[in-house]
Amino acid sequence: MSESNKTDFTNPSTFILLGIPGLEMAHVWISIPFCTMYIIAILENFIILFIVKTEPSLHGPMYYFLCMLAGSDLVVSMSIVPKILSIFWFNSREINFSACLTQMYFIHCFSALESGILVAMALDRYVAICDPLRHSTILRNPVVVKIGLAMVLRSTMVILPFPLLARWWPYCRTNIIPEPFCAHIAVVKLACANTRVSSYYDLFVLFSVTGPDVFFITVSYIQILRVIFCLHTKNTRLKTLGTCSSHLCVILVFYIPRLSSSVMYQFGQNVAIHFHVLFANMFLLLPPMLNPIIYGVMTREIRDRLLLLFTNKGT
């Protein structure tokens, strides 16, 4: 290890991102699916935003929340993929200390925001199915705006201590991060002080954000399923459940990889580091690409508008 990486420094001027350790020779090949997913995610989410904006029939709570989800996916993708590709293509491994903390904040902030948006969507589905006659009066536009602002405020304030604490710690061991982006835990591990405060706060975020979100979504769908199973005909039950299918798929795409990554991080000490890093990248890159596909395929209104959009372009 170079002498520059061993010397004491309270705040290093730069961090070194290794990309995917152990697979450096394959970086160019790995960049192909990463770049493909990134381009697809950007195009899809902008299309979703364009369709909802230009189609008056889609100006409702569910589609407003979908736009927030698309915007959040765009920010997460654009926060990490350009730097990853610069590492893979140009071996541009250095990242400014402040830029690293900024990237960390955006990644965790908008991931927390996406979790909150999924809760808001669960609320929309709950009201639409369990109290359909009052849906338009309960989820009026001002209420939707307030819910959206509450989710944004929660994520921005809860995640703010991550970079503040990371800037506070002294770094005297190394400035090398064995990942292609600045995740909170990866940065804090480099500090040469007692970082229990950061570790405890990380757990606090888990139990105060993700935990309640998963609980609320679960309770909402328990009530939704109770109402669905009380419907008289099988076709009605299937049709009503179909209105939740896209949201349920997005929930699974968002939470299952994160849960799997956490379990693997805690109990997969014998798993190769490049597998850990690849998996961490996948759970950040896949949702922005898959969410628009899920809603485009499973939501009839968006699917019809998509077909109309591309049919008109083809004529």
Results as ranks from 00 to 15, higher is better:
167 R>I: 04
175 N>G: 12
168 W>Y: 14
155 S>W: 01
174 T>R: 02
167 R>P: 00
181 F>P: 03
155 S>I: 08
178 P>W: 01
153 L>V: 06
164 L>G: 06
165 L>D: 11
172 C>I: 01
171 Y>Q: 07
182 C>I: 05
179 E>I: 08
155 S>R: 05
167 R>A: 15
157 M>T: 15
180 P>A: 12
152 V>M: 15
179 E>F: 15
166 A>V: 13
177 I>Y: 08
161 P>T: 03
161 P>G: 00
160 L>N: 07
156 T>S: 12
168 W>F: 13
159 I>L: 11
170 P>V: 07
158 V>Y: 12
156 T>Y: 10
170 P>D: 13
158 V>E: 07
183 A>W: 10
183 A>I: 11
166 A>M: 13
167 R>V: 03
178 P>A: 11
173 R>V: 09
171 Y>E: 08
157 M>K: 03
162 F>Q: 13
171 Y>M: 06
159 I>H: 05
165 L>I: 15
176 I>D: 01
163 P>C: 12
151 M>T: 13
170 P>I: 09
178 P>H: 06
183 A>S: 14
161 P>L: 10
182 C>P: 02
167 R>E: 11
171 Y>N: 08
157 M>W: 09
172 C>E: 02
165 L>Y: 14
160 L>H: 05
177 I>K: 01
159 I>Y: 09
176 I>M: 04
172 C>A: 10
159 I>W: 03
175 N>P: 00
161 P>R: 02
175 N>I: 04
175 N>H: 07
172 C>Y: 04
183 A>N: 13
158 V>G: 00
156 T>L: 12
160 L>C: 02
179 E>P: 00
177 I>L: 12
181 F>G: 07
168 W>V: 00
174 T>I: 03
169 W>P: 00
163 P>F: 03
168 W>Q: 06
176 I>L: 04
176 I>K: 02
181 F>E: 14
153 L>W: 03
169 W>I: 07
173 R>Y: 04
176 I>F: 00
156 T>E: 03
178 P>G: 04
177 I>M: 13
160 L>Q: 05
181 F>H: 14
157 M>S: 13
154 R>S: 08
174 T>K: 01
178 P>C: 06
164 L>F: 06
174 T>D: 01
169 W>C: 09
164 L>T: 09
171 Y>C: 06
162 F>R: 11
164 L>N: 04
166 A>D: 09
168 W>G: 00
170 P>G: 10
154 R>A: 08
178 P>D: 03
176 I>E: 00
